[in-house]
Simulated assay, not measured.
Amino acid sequence: MISEDRVLLLDLENLGATQLRPRPLRARLETLLAAAGTIHHAVAAYARPDTLDGDPLASQLAQLRIAPLRVAPGPDAAELALLAHAHRVHADGIRTFLVGSADGRFAELARLGRVELLVWNEQPVATKLADVVHHVHRLSRPTGAAAEEPVDREQPEPDFPPPGAPIPAPADPRHTGTSHAARLLAAFTTGIGIAAGQRFLDALLTRPRR
């Protein structure tokens, strides 16, 4: 790393991104990455209990070449994880930090170098943080039906035939087998995609984003 390199630190909880579904989450992350411009790497911190099965959020981040920092829930857990990372890369020469958060804890980064904020329009920024940052980038949250789809959807009522109607013939077994094979192929392809995303993440910190 060299002093001109820039690192993006994302506090997903402060940005309101931890509970989003995949499509709106990706839209918000892509907005932040586009605003950051050329960076050495990006890191996103968030808290999740160890009891939860799997971590789909980590897979989403890996697809966008954002290193996930999952921490156990606790006071300022995500912020402390990002600050610890900032101190580590500062020791390697980094002097510019792009921070996706409005939390006042990040004011201490001003002692390490230049600090710029990436926050949403009308998102309040802690006073002690606003007093020390060099620039604030105000971003519009992605909106629209495609990006803000609801978490729950009503399922359509089953369409039962009226009384006395003829019972339809069973599906052709050959077609059923083909459909089952297609579903297996889709599941196999998804597994390959997740594995590739993890390899993508392993190589993230060894080369700059351009």
Rank of each mutant, 00 (worst) to 15 (best):
M1E: 14
S3M: 04
R6Q: 13
L9V: 11
L10F: 01
L12N: 00
L12R: 02
E13D: 09
N14Q: 05
N14M: 00
G16V: 06
G16H: 03
L20E: 07
P22G: 02
P22T: 07
L25C: 08
R26Q: 09
L32F: 15
L33E: 08
A35P: 11
A36S: 14
A36K: 12
I39R: 10
H40G: 15
H40N: 10
H41K: 11
P49I: 05
P49L: 02
D50F: 09
D50I: 04
T51H: 15
L52C: 12
S59D: 15
S59N: 12
R65P: 03
P68C: 05
P68I: 07
L69C: 05
P73R: 09
P75K: 13
P75V: 12
A77Q: 06
E79I: 00
L82N: 02
L82E: 04
A84P: 00
A86F: 04
H87A: 13
V89D: 06
H90S: 15
A91W: 05
A91Q: 12
D92W: 13
G93H: 02
I94Y: 01
I94T: 12
F97P: 14
L98C: 09
S101A: 04
A102F: 01
A102N: 02
D103Y: 02
F106W: 05
F106P: 04
R111D: 12
L112W: 04
G113Q: 09
R114M: 08
E116L: 04
L117A: 07
L118V: 02
V119S: 05
V119T: 14
W120R: 08
W120N: 03
N121L: 12
N121F: 12
E122F: 11
Q123M: 04
P124T: 00
A126S: 08
T127P: 07
L129C: 04
D131W: 01
V132T: 08
V133L: 05
V133H: 01
H135E: 15
S140F: 10
R141Y: 01
R141P: 06
G144S: 00
A146N: 05
A147V: 11
E148H: 01
E148W: 01
E149M: 11
V151I: 11
V151R: 15
D152I: 10
R153Q: 11
E154D: 12
P156M: 10
E157F: 08
P158E: 10
P158M: 10
P162D: 15
A165T: 09
A165Y: 07
P166V: 14
P168R: 09
A171W: 00
D172E: 10
G177T: 06
T178I: 13
S179N: 07
S179Q: 13
H180Q: 13
A181S: 10
R183K: 10
R183A: 11
L185T: 09
A186L: 15
A187N: 08
A187T: 06
A187F: 03
F188T: 14
T189N: 13
I192T: 08
G193A: 13
I194V: 15
A195Q: 11
A196V: 11
A196Y: 06
G197Q: 13
R199H: 09
F200N: 14
F200R: 14
L201G: 00
D202I: 09
A203I: 07
L205A: 13
P208G: 11
P208Y: 05
